[in-house]
């Protein structure tokens, strides 16, 4: 998209006005500062996805659009999760973080903050594996993605 004030609200406005649902949305400037890249996750039948694609393409600020699901692609999301880790629980959280290839990025006497990247399912699985009562705070970045192989979203 054009890296312009208002571009994001045009997209968000389109989704709310037409009753589409945004599951997650990430946006940041690209190597070309006049452009920003948005990754948006939504759900719908083929017809709905086709409409969403067409409506997004109609927005003047949208330069190029790619449906990641049309081909093989990599999805990543970053999660930071703060977990109570005292006494016996401490080892357990560390062990789980290792299994999921997470990193402990902050430590107190009673807490660990774990950083974890992966696709949505992996993050969900990690959350499910922790003792639920010990989870203090979860922050997820929303999904970004890139196509595998030659396929690329470039202007």
């Amino acid at each position: 998209m054009e890296n312009e004030a208002g571009a994001l609200s045009r997209v968000a406005g389109l989704f709310s006005a037409r009753g589409y649902n945004i599951e997650s949305l990430t946006v940041a400037p690209t190597e070309d500062p006049s452009l920003s890249r948005m990754t948006l996750v939504t759900r719908g039948t083929d017809e709905v996805i086709e409409q969403i694609t067409k409506q997004l393409n109609k927005l003047i600020d949208v330069v190029k659009l790619m449906d990641m699901y049309e081909g093989p692609h990599i999805e990543r999301e970053l999660m930071l999760i703060k977990v109570r880790a005292a006494n016996g629980g401490r080892e357990e959280v560390k062990r789980l973080a290792d299994i999921f290839r997470g990193r402990i990025v902050d430590v107190t006497d009673t807490l660990y903050t774990v950083e974890l990247t992966g696709d949505g399912e992996k993050l969900d699985a990690f959350i499910a594996a922790l003792p639920q009562a010990d989870i203090i705070e979860v922050v997820r970045s929303g999904v970004t993605g890139i196509a595998r192989g030659e396929r690329a979203l470039r202007v």
């Binding site: 017809e47 086709e50 409409q51 067409k54 393409n57 109609k58």
Partner: peptide
């Protein structure tokens, strides 16, 4: 002229 009008 508007692709979004088609099959809407």
């Amino acid at each position: 002229i508007d692709p979004a009008s088609i099959s809407k």
